[in-house]
């Protein structure tokens, strides 16, 4: 079996994998980082979104071996260094942007990528960015609100959580 090595949440990791091992299975099974979820088999739900070299990608549609040498960040790796919730994570809590929590890691990782590219997105831009993330619980309303609030806070503005 070939070996793959990469950096996951700042830690160097290496493991034997099959050619067909998906990045998401490598994270969940080999590293037991189960925050990255699998919600579909057609690349559409986004429950599996992680960052590969800073870009959000669907870990269910990438081979672990393709990530050789990459820097991977998962939901387990985005809290503040002291372990407290990041601005974006906290905005999801403050604005009730999650219910069952299953889509949440993918939503957060996807939104983090958006805010890196666009510090001041409009509501339309947020909604369109989330095209690849399905949520069955929230109706998206509060997810969008949370992302807009996090963007505002990161720009130094403050939006009341009602």
């Amino acid at each position: 079996m070939p070996t793959v090595s990469m950096t996951v949440n700042g830690k160097a990791v290496a493991s034997d994998v099959e050619g067909r091992t998906l990045l998401v299975d490598f994270l969940r099974e080999n590293l037991r980082l189960t925050g990255t979820h699998v919600g579909c088999d057609t690349l559409q739900c986004g429950a599996c979104v992680v960052h590969v070299n800073g870009d959000s990608v669907k870990a269910c549609s990438m081979l672990a071996l393709s990530a050789e040498g990459a820097e991977i960040t998962t939901i387990e790796g985005i809290a503040n260094p002291d372990g407290s919730l990041s601005v974006l994570q906290r905005a999801f809590q403050d604005h009730h942007g999650l219910q069952c929590g299953f889509c949440t890691p993918g939503m957060v990782m996807s939104a983090a990528d958006l805010l890196k590219r666009n510090a001041n997105p409009s509501e339309r831009e947020v909604r369109e960015w989330l095209e690849g993330n399905l949520c069955r619980c929230t109706g998206y309303h509060n997810i969008v609100k949370a992302i807009l609030a996090a963007a505002a806070e990161m720009r130094g503005e403050k939006i009341a959580a009602e």
């Binding site: 986004g46 979104v49 870009d55 959000s56 990608v57 996807s110 990528d113 095209e131 690849g132 993330n133």
Partner: peptide, 9 residues
């Protein structure tokens, strides 16, 4: 095309 994650790959 697709969604942002698909466009990233």
């Amino acid at each position: 095309i697709g969604d942002p994650q698909v466009r990233n790959r």
